[in-house]
């Protein structure tokens, strides 16, 4: 009897996140349906202007999608190489005592409030970039993306390091015994072996970058802008949601509904990347 009670509690704990996820999806879908009664799906997906708060409102998601993907791409181009190299260094090169010091410091990067990163991007990184490129505006995707990348380095490095450290010692010895250097062993044996674990790190980083709000809201300018140029300002889906929810939109208005639609789009995007990650993982696990 007692055993069954404990089992039920554990089951609830395990499924709670599933319920929450379904709840969120339900709310998003429910609030989005009336929006699509108003705006045709085709226009939403292909429109190149996003001006839900203007007199002549336009609801093309592309500018927001573009801002989101651009800032994420910049962030990942910082976080993935840096995080992977940091992980390789921590797991294969450092002495244990040094790792004990370096790892917590690196992980501290993830503990800094994102609003701090936002102002760091706006007030420190942007002026720095302006020294190199004087025409750069005060708000731009590049600076926000770079700082976001720094911010998610620990997500990549921490999980990647765990994956690399779980590579069996006899595989590494096998590589060394064939005359390989430490560097060759890391790049030819350790990383390929750890790759399925490392994809989870990358997927977490992608999800984190897609969903990041504060840094892009503060430093990227909140201007929906269909551009692939990182030097221009842009808005991400999350930044738009924040912007709108800070104003006073009447409940049930089309602008209000547009937040839910944006949220649903973001959720869908994250889901796509997670599925991609899962697929990659399985693909690499099969190869082992």
């Amino acid at each position: 009897m007692k055993e069954r009670f404990i089992e039920a509690i554990l089951f609830l704990a395990a499924t709670s996140s599933v319920f929450v996820t379904f709840g969120i999806v339900w709310i998003l879908v429910k609030e989005s349906i009336p929006f699509f009664a108003h705006v045709p799906l085709g226009e939403f997906l292909t429109g190149t202007e996003w001006t839900p708060l203007f007199e002549n409102a336009r609801f093309g998601i592309l500018p927001l999608l573009c801002g989101t993907l651009l800032s994420t791409a910049i962030a990942l181009s910082v976080a993935i190489p840096l995080g992977t190299v940091a992980a390789a260094f921590l797991s294969e090169y450092t002495k244990p005592w040094l790792r004990e010091i370096l790892k917590p410091i690196l992980e501290l990067l993830a503990a800094v409030p994102t609003v701090v990163y936002g102002y760091f991007a706006l007030l420190f990184v942007t002026p720095l970039l302006q020294k190199i490129h004087p025409d750069l505006g005060g708000f731009n995707v590049l600076s926000a993306g770079l700082v976001m990348g720094m911010m998610i380095v620990p997500y990549v490095s921490s999980l990647s390091e765990d994956a690399m450290r779980s590579v069996p010692g006899h595989l590494k010895e096998g590589s060394f015994a064939l005359g390989a250097s430490r560097f060759q062993t890391i790049f030819r044996v350790v990383i390929p072996t750890a790759f399925s674990g490392m994809t989870s790190a990358y997927i977490l980083a992608i999800s984190r970058a897609l969903g990041e709000t504060m840094v892009v809201s503060i430093a990227a300018g909140m201007q929906p802008n269909l551009t692939a140029n990182p030097l221009e300002p842009a808005a991400t889906i999350t930044a738009f949601i924040v912007q709108v929810s800070m104003g006073d939109l009447p409940h049930g208005s089309i602008g209000y509904q547009s937040i839910y639609v944006a949220g649903l789009t973001l959720l869908f995007l994250t889901l796509c990347f997670n599925v991609l990650g899962l697929w990659l993982r399985q693909k690499y696990q099969e190869k082992e």
């Binding site: 069996p168 006899h170 595989l171 010895e173 096998g174 590589s175 060394f176 015994a177 064939l178 005359g179 390989a180 250097s181 060759q184 030819r188 044996v189 390929p192 072996t193 190869k287 082992e288």
Partner: peptide
């Protein structure tokens, strides 16, 4: 280690193809 080869107690093929396993020593050279 390039002049003296070693085989271990537990078979330790790399998670690569059969071909690439045998080619490994040549590739690192």
């Amino acid at each position: 280690r390039m002049r003296i080869g070693m085989v271990f107690q537990k078979p330790n093929p790399f998670p690569k193809s059969i071909f690439e396993n045998v080619a490994y020593g040549l590739r690192v050279r």
